[in-house]
Simulated assay, not measured.
Amino acid sequence: MTVTSRAVTTAVLAALLAVAAYLGPLWVAGAACLLTVLLAVGWARLLRLPAAGATAVVLLVAGFGGVAVAWATPDEPVLRNLPVVIALSLVLAFVAQMLRRGGRPRLVESVSGTTAGIVAAVASTGWVAAVRTDGGADLVVTSAVALAVASAVSALPVAGGWAGSLLAAALGAAAGAGTATALPGVEPVVGLLVGAVAGVVAGALRFLLDRQPALAGRLAAVAAVALPVTVTGMLVFVVGRLVL
């Protein structure tokens, strides 16, 4: 995938998430699981880690476990059991390394990369937690629209480097504020804030991954496409808890 096609695909994923939030929490949970799958299948190749299959399994367990825990928690705080999921996923990551054969080359790199992947996969749980709070569906729609706009801006030829990241953040904030004016559950100021967060994530990750040589591979590109959407989920939930 080219830089432009990755940015456009991320925008499409964010738009689909907005549609899922409109349809209901169960659809958002399904979208979070899909994001976990996309991230897991290419994460090891994105970071050029050994034992790609084991890394994918660990990330799938972490992401699905986080979504299941958030969905099964009936009242606030929705994510109170998430640390247990993260802890067990870290144990599973070490077990996966112990089961490796052939001398376990690049062990530290593999463990640290898998740990980062666990955090990224679990972050998608934030979308599920956000949509289940008061006014959460409108918050998720606002954030997802802002992320879609910011990602689309990142696809423009003039959107490279720091200037492009700032442009994505600014237009993401504007899109968030504009979307919030049409929704009853989110104030325009809140929409501006979560839109800015989504824009910063989209612009920063595009800038960060621009020169990653592994992106020439298709699976690595798939993980890079899903990463901004998964990471934004937890940030939106945190911002929503602070301002709603």
Rank of each mutant, 00 (worst) to 15 (best):
R6V: 12
T9K: 05
A14L: 07
L17D: 01
A18E: 03
V19F: 03
Y22M: 11
L23T: 09
L23G: 05
G24N: 00
P25W: 01
V28G: 05
A29E: 01
G30M: 05
G30A: 12
G30P: 06
A32S: 10
A32T: 04
L38S: 12
L39Y: 09
A40W: 02
A44Y: 08
A56M: 15
L60C: 08
L60D: 06
V61G: 05
V61N: 02
V69Y: 01
L79S: 04
L82T: 09
A96C: 07
Q97P: 08
R100G: 10
E109H: 15
G113M: 04
T114V: 07
V119Y: 15
A121I: 07
S124Y: 07
S124Q: 13
G126M: 02
V128E: 13
D138I: 05
S143F: 12
S143C: 14
A144V: 02
A144C: 06
A144G: 06
A148G: 05
V149H: 03
A150F: 04
S151V: 01
V153P: 00
V158R: 15
V158H: 07
W162I: 09
L167W: 13
A168V: 12
A169N: 10
A170T: 13
G172S: 00
G178Y: 00
T181Q: 14
P184K: 10
E187D: 14
G195K: 00
G195L: 01
V197G: 01
A198I: 00
A204E: 13
R206M: 08
R206Q: 15
R206T: 10
L208G: 02
A214W: 03
L215Q: 08
G217N: 11
R218D: 14
A226V: 05
L227P: 02
T232F: 10
G233L: 01
V236D: 06
G240A: 15
R241A: 06
L244D: 09
